[in-house]
Design a protein around this nucleic acid. Structure first.
Lengths: 329, 329
DNA sequence: CTGTTAGCGCCTTCAC
DNA sequence: GTGAAGGCGCTAACAG
């Protein structure tokens, strides 16, 4: 492997000149520049990143810690982050916390060891509640999950409002006993629960909510139980795509169709929600945009460490399908 | 940030001893070890990875280049790789080539720059056909995609056999005009096509195959066309989960149900294949195991660079569901 | 078993 | 505009 001094020798210049050319610094004569570039090409020289990082104390690497890579929501986030990061010549280390706070802590530690330039984090609940930017030696941007009073850069959906609109939609369509199955282990689930509660209260309806771990299995179990309860709920709503999948499976097993006897709705516009007949009403999230906004925000923060804390809130879009068709209509 | 000499001073030993303790090397007295550990704790010392990597010329990092992160198959692979890698105290850099050979080449270059210990690669077709391990300065394990005559460590499904069994299953159930829609841009799609062709030929049936880019959209378009052709195929089979999704969407749009007038089957046991009524017959891939085998193989190769080339082939499992119910039965 | 020391490859003043 | 030289923090060879 050629190194900087080989290039210098080949080009008949000093290593300093080579370094300057590689870094694109000004103050190098065009003649020198060209000779260096030729030598680089001839020797197929690539700067050693380990040496460069040691010397410069920068890694140009950002960490992305998602809470569950199996959730398509997060794979889209990661695509966006990766796309933008590489355009800015930054590396991405992707880590999957699997909704496990310990694993998450491990990865956060690793980020410190790696001396990353910044981190995009979708925190587990315990981490979020005690989150303070100053606890980390690098800038952090929260994505998807953030509390109202968390002082941190963040990119999130309008969770409360979206859940309110989804619930109001069901009410408007004539449903009354609306059960809401939501992930208790995430801020997102809780906020969406809040929107549901507000919508029900506003319309003078009784709530029927059930918090579960945000997994397909837990959601299915919860829905199975509801399907056996009497009186039967007349609608089921899910706080995310995984839970919605669980609900749908449970209804299938219980041989209950939708919208009759039970309507169905949820979050995340996944491909299968269109396939299951007659289609499931959902709040679509601008997933790629959320990821893009997060990395943009992080890059800004890295460039301007002192800039004021900002939060980007994106609007969820209600997509009406057959699963919430007008009751008795 | 504390560094090694601070620890040495605090513990009253030399930096060499600290280095030995940190590396877990033998040949350090228990007393020294304990004093070092105490000092490390007291100062919250973490070795600087950039310095360590520069000096030791090892990164303990492996690269994982998947061809499409949106395909759930690859997210499972990445989970497995990550789990195993971190157990072995290795880092993972995950890259998504998006089925784009240029992007893939870029990432392969990056792996070289990063001086990774090894790479797990799911290659695009152009890369695979000219693949030679010796072209890369690091060990490579192919996953999911590999040609019969590629001399490289690899972990793959028994693609030809699985496709044969899937096709034979349809034939046995009474279907005759079986159309196979497969991804032409991947070795996997081609091999599965081969299994389909063999099965059809063995049973004296005419093939009706259509190669498409491996995307939901392309598959949907191809299926729409088939749905308008006369005579209508009596069965549709897909070479992977993305294509199967496209086929299913096209049948929905064309208001064609399954198994009558058209049966349906494919690869990848995704959650939604159970949800769509009456359930879709698929070949299930042991995705997590495939990923695990790939990283195991890579770690072995890193430990023993000279060991003979090995290939791990895993069996796909046929899961019969309503979409391929006996014809006229 | 422990300490001393010479670099790993590069960047970046500092002189010229 | 260019070159010489020191050192980033650590590991490993060597000496004791």
């Amino acid at each position: 492997m050629a190194q900087i001094k080989d290039v210098a020798k080949q080009a008949g210049v000093s290593v300093a000149s080579v370094s300057r050319v590689m870094a694109g610094h000004a103050g190098v004569s065009e003649a020198t520049r060209q000779r260096v570039l030729d030598a680089v090409q001839a020797l197929d020289y690539r700067p050693d990143l380990a040496a460069r990082r040691l010397r410069s104390r920068r890694t140009d690497t950002i960490g992305l810690i998602v809470s569950d890579i199996r959730n398509p929501f997060f794979t889209e986030i990661s695509r966006a982050v990766e796309d933008v990061a590489y355009q800015h010549r930054m590396r991405v280390i992707l880590c999957n916390a699997d909704e496990d706070p310990e694993k998450e802590a491990l990865y956060l530690d690793l980020m410190r060891d790696e001396n990353v330039s910044g981190v995009i984090l979708s925190p587990t609940l315990p981490t979020l509640v005690r989150f303070r930017s100053s606890d980390y030696p690098f800038p952090v941007v929260l994505v998807d999950r953030c509390d109202r009073d968390t002082a941190a850069d963040a990119v999130v959906l309008d969770n409360v409002d979206s859940a309110y609109r989804l619930t109001a939609h069901l009410i408007e369509r004539g449903y009354r006993r609306i059960a809401f199955i939501y992930g208790v282990t995430s801020a997102t689930g809780r906020q969406r629960h809040e929107g549901y509660v507000t919508a029900m209260a506003t319309h003078g309806l009784e709530t029927l909510a059930k918090g579960v771990p945000a997994t397909v299995e837990a959601a299915r179990a919860a829905a199975s139980e509801l399907a056996r309860s009497r009186p039967l709920p007349d609608a089921l709503a899910a706080s995310n795509g995984l839970i919605l999948l669980g609900l749908t499976e449970a209804l299938r097993e219980a041989k209950l169709r939708f919208p009759q006897p039970i309507a169905l709705a949820g979050f995340d516009d996944l491909p299968w929600t269109r396939l299951v007949e007659p289609g499931i009403t959902v709040i679509a999230q601008p997933t790629y945009d959320l990821g893009q906004a997060a990395i943009d925000l992080l890059l800004q923060r890295i460039a301007h460490p002192a800039q004021s804390v900002r939060r980007v809130v994106m609007r969820g879009e209600l997509i009406e399908r057959g699963s919430s068709a007008k009751r008795g209509g």
